[in-house]
Nucleic acid binder design. Structure first.
Lengths: 198, 198, 198, 198
DNA sequence: AATGAATGAGCCTTCATTCAT
DNA sequence: TATGAATGAAGGCTCATTCAT
């Protein structure tokens, strides 16, 4: 499969991402993807052999991008811990809000059925990574006096569970941008409120 | 529809709940339910006309039960606010952990595709109800000096988003009972920690 | 599956037999059988799950009938060995000649690909049974002076291999009724020729 | 088509023969042959337009070779009739036994469906040729006293039907080398047995 | 009310065949 | 000549839904 093929494969993955975003995982048929890509039924099988196959590749692509972004954002340079955490949360917010390419429900649906070993579960890997990043940022903030927090890990986990709650809620009961800001701010303020009091 | 019919309808709903719990929403076929109920294909159609029909009735039944329980727990008597909140959280924890009859993913799957009007969305109704209950409990706790909280609504929402995050996480990446306790405790401690300091 | 179902199943088997007879084994699709039976695609799957499934049942039905006929013919009564052998050969000839319901090639095709254990191979079972029957008849004929044969088993096998050759030839290169008579007579004459000489 | 082309065509035919030998006729796809030849899909179409096309050419090649061999064996020189017949049968036996390049079932399968005119049927041509060869050999043997046979043509046909029976049996119910020897010997002995008596 | 056989739409998958390069 | 990506027809199979009993 040459360069040209790789391009087409990526094209299919891009289209498929939108489809999974709109319909979840199990709802998506090969025909849906064929239609979205405007290619032939047989043509799709040259690149992928099942919706699961496609879905996992879509997920793999996504993880890479997002992790890179998030991690780079967190590690890049000499911004203050508060600014970096704000940046991280901005990424999460973008993630929560995006309509297209939002694989939240599809992913939940897929892994809730798959029951694969905890180790290999990319959802868990991503969640744990995010917790670690946030924990580190809070620790840094505490060290330089920006934050007050006696339990950075607990706070980081709390934040990420809120983010998970917001993600699923935005896809199921709908949630406004303002509401997201409000929730994330609520957590952030817990980190600085005592400081303000003093 | 006579009394006998109502009984059979409930029987079907009970069996169907287990099926939806195990397979999500879209994965479930009329045959799955027919098999689970050990009735005939045609018989099922006497009571329900589609899996969606059944699913919505299952959901409706569930909401009723749970709301009742939760509301009763919250309103019953003269227990302290802290005890009542602890009771409410115990219900939530049971909800998060239960394997059978756990419609979390099926529900998310269903409503993420349905995009029905916010008003009619039972998920939203249930979420909002829970927030109001928690808010009330916190306010009561603040009033009688049990809790310290400047923003009861914000805190209630934070708690419920954490609960949502825990629910979906328990179905996708797995989560231990201890982890749930830890997360709920983390939020509760935020309500009493300042008190302890004083 | 009640009596009525059994009737329909038999109906399908009867129609399918004709199809296999005309097209061999691998050439036959579920659609071919559906068309032949004038039922729906889904309807066929209520009774059989694959062409192989159908084919094996068709074969099973056939074996039973034929074996019964042949064996009964061979064992029935006090006819002379010569008459009984002639009767047996008449059955074989009918088998060789019949256009409809002739599963020869389909069977050969199927078992040449299946490579199943020799023990379970119904073709072999049928062949061996026929050899034994013929051997017995020849022995009886020798005992009562009708036949002259020093090697009844060898002669029986020779006869049955000729029958096999005639069967396949009649389906591939075509063969007239006269030619079949001639071939069978040739073998029969070998049994009595010496007697005539004496 | 140049010499180079002819060479490649032959290369394809050789590879295809193995495929047909393993899978019969209908089971073979253009892809099977493309894979066996390690050429491109389009490349194959430069030489052949269908599996049937390829199959017929494979058959044609085979016939030529075998006829040549058999005829040459039969006509070559001054060997005794018995030796020549033994040689001929050895060829047949090789044919019956060979695993690779054995087109028996594929051929039967093909011609049993094709129902082509008797004249053009290479199977029939080959069969008739073989009968004539054997008949001639027997006649020669009778002439010089090696054999005793009142009906050389009948005997020749009997022999060739046995060979056909052995061929198909070896592919369907399995047959040992010893069994083949035994069967061919049984026929041969019929030609000389009377001589032994005298 | 209840049954379950029957239907046909729709998705999955394979493969002969074409065609731009 | 040679390639292999692409197509679309065809067959396999499942499942919601109907209907005669």
């Amino acid at each position: 499969m040459g360069e040209k093929s790789a391009k087409k494969k990526q094209y299919i993955l891009d289209k498929a991402r939108v489809v999974f975003s709109e319909k979840g995982f199990k709802n998506v048929t090969m025909k849906d993807i064929v239609d979205a890509c405007d290619i032939s039924r047989g043509g799709l099988y040259l690149y992928f052999s099942s919706t699961e196959d496609i879905f996992l590749e879509v997920l793999a692509t996504e993880s890479d991008e997002d992790d890179d972004e998030a991690i780079n954002a967190a590690l890049s340079g000499d911004a203050s811990a508060g600014d970096m955490l704000a940046l991280f949360l901005k990424e999460q917010k973008k993630d929560i809000l995006r309509k297209k390419n939002n694989l939240t429900v599809a992913t939940y649906e897929y892994y809730s059925v798959k029951k694969q070993s905890v180790k290999d579960n990319p959802l868990k890997v991503k969640f744990d990574t995010s917790v670690r990043i946030v924990e580190k940022l809070i620790e840094n903030g505490v060290d330089n006096g920006e934050f007050v927090c006696e339990n950075p890990l607990g706070c980081a986990r709390n934040l990420m569970y809120v983010v998970e709650g917001l993600k699923i809620s935005s896809k199921t009961i709908g949630i406004s941008e303002e509401a997201i800001d409000r929730e994330l701010m609520y957590v952030l303020e817990g980190l600085v409120s005592d400081e303000l009091n003093s």
